[in-house]
């Protein structure tokens, strides 16, 4: 399966490990990870590092996940507006689903994601914890 490729994940290490993103050098719009052509027409971007502070825009609790996440049981995923302006999708951990709300402040943490099969690589990345 595509998820077993370590190379796919290696290409995204900077974004995933350092929470790095991009800022359009023309209009200043900020992006997390893949960027494409900016609505302003520019394809020039500067790399920026996000502070990791943000707010929940919407959230849910997944009760039945894909194969690679079956070990995790139930887990929360949210869309988050980072303080600098970009929007990101990430898991929210170390909390109860019931305690979360739209508008809850969150902060980035570095965590394990999943393992690609018995002999596969362990994938890591950024998750978020609430700051009540």
């Amino acid at each position: 399966m595509f998820r077993d490729s370590s190379i796919i994940r290696w290409r995204a290490y900077k974004d995933r490990y350092m929470l790095e993103g991009y800022e359009c050098s023309s209009c200043g719009k900020k992006y997390f990870e893949s960027k494409g052509m900016c609505p302003c027409g520019s394809i020039e971007f500067n790399e920026i590092e996000f502070s990791g502070v943000g707010k929940i825009v919407s959230f849910t609790q997944i009760h039945s996940g894909p194969e690679a996440f079956s070990e995790q049981g139930k887990y929360c995923v949210a869309i988050i507006d980072l303080a600098e302006g970009a929007r990101i999708t990430a898991q929210i951990v170390d909390c109860k689903f019931e305690d979360l709300a739209i508008g809850t402040n969150v902060e980035a943490v570095f965590r394990k994601f999943y393992k690609s099969g018995e002999k596969g690589a362990i994938h890591y990345g950024t998750k978020f914890v609430p700051k009540f």
Partner: peptide, 28 residues
């Protein structure tokens, strides 16, 4: 396996990697 296949309709790098599923996307 079906859940994983369907998630190919979303963004594999930005959403699938975080454990999102299709019901999860519509729940959001």
């Amino acid at each position: 396996q079906v859940t994983t296949m369907l998630m190919g309709a979303g963004d594999e790098e930005l959403e699938g990697f975080n454990g999102l599923t299709f019901p999860g996307l519509y729940a959001l």
